[in-house]
């Protein structure tokens, strides 16, 4: 019995997605191992890979990568199906959806702006998830503004990094 070989382009697409997924999982674990930078605050490097998947491979790849990264990353750091997992998933999904919408519908936006909106969506979604599912107290939002300011900085820097990487990849691919 002959097994039909998938087209080369399809194999290349899948292998590229898996490479990005492995990178994102590695960064997810690395960020979890970083010293505590404040409640729920992370540099957002794993989110940078979602952004790269969006520009290199399209919205569907970005969304599946965001989900896959949180599930497998949480599995490796031992937080799968814990509140931390739910909060990470909400943040990752919200960031991916908003970045996809911004990249597609906001004219004149570059990866820097897309990343900025993704970082803000990530932080907001985490707070909304905690407030609605775990600690139903609006006072939780008192801590949000300074963290959103930090998200602006990390989102902007990650966006610049994404532009650099995207430019390098398009020259080398």
């Amino acid at each position: 019995m002959l097994i039909s070989r998938p087209p080369l382009a399809e194999l290349e697409h899948k292998s590229r997605w898996i490479a990005l997924l492995v990178l994102a999982i590695g960064l997810h674990i690395f960020e979890a191992a970083l010293p505590n930078l404040g409640p729920w605050f992370k540099p957002g490097l794993a989110n940078l890979v979602t952004l790269m998947a969006l520009v290199l491979m399209g919205p569907r790849a970005a969304l599946t990568l965001a989900i896959g990264r949180v599930v497998l990353g949480s599995f490796f750091i031992g937080t799968l199906f814990t509140p931390t997992f739910v909060i990470s998933m909400a943040g990752g999904l919200a960031a991916a959806v908003l970045m996809i919408a911004a990249w597609r519908y906001i004219p004149g936006i570059s990866l820097v702006g897309v990343s900025l909106l993704g970082a803000l969506a990530h932080m907001l979604a985490q707070f909304v998830t905690v407030e609605s599912l775990f600690i139903q107290q609006a006072v939780l939002y008192y801590a949000l503004p300074p963290l959103l300011l930090l998200s602006c900085i990390t989102g902007w820097i990650n966006g610049a990094l994404a532009r650099y990487i995207a430019a390098r990849l398009t020259h080398e691919l």
Binding site: V55, I106, P107, G108, I109, S110, L111, V112, G113, L116, L117, C152, W156, I157, G159, A160, R163, Y164, A166, A167, R168, T170, H171
Partner: peptide, 23 residues
């Protein structure tokens, strides 16, 4: 529309006009 890899980091950090408006 993305910048050339030879562009320096300062130019990359500037973002577009829309990015700066969003910020």
């Amino acid at each position: 529309s993305e910048p050339d890899s030879g562009q320096n980091m300062f130019q990359l950090l500037k973002g577009s006009r829309t990015d700066r408006l969003l910020l």
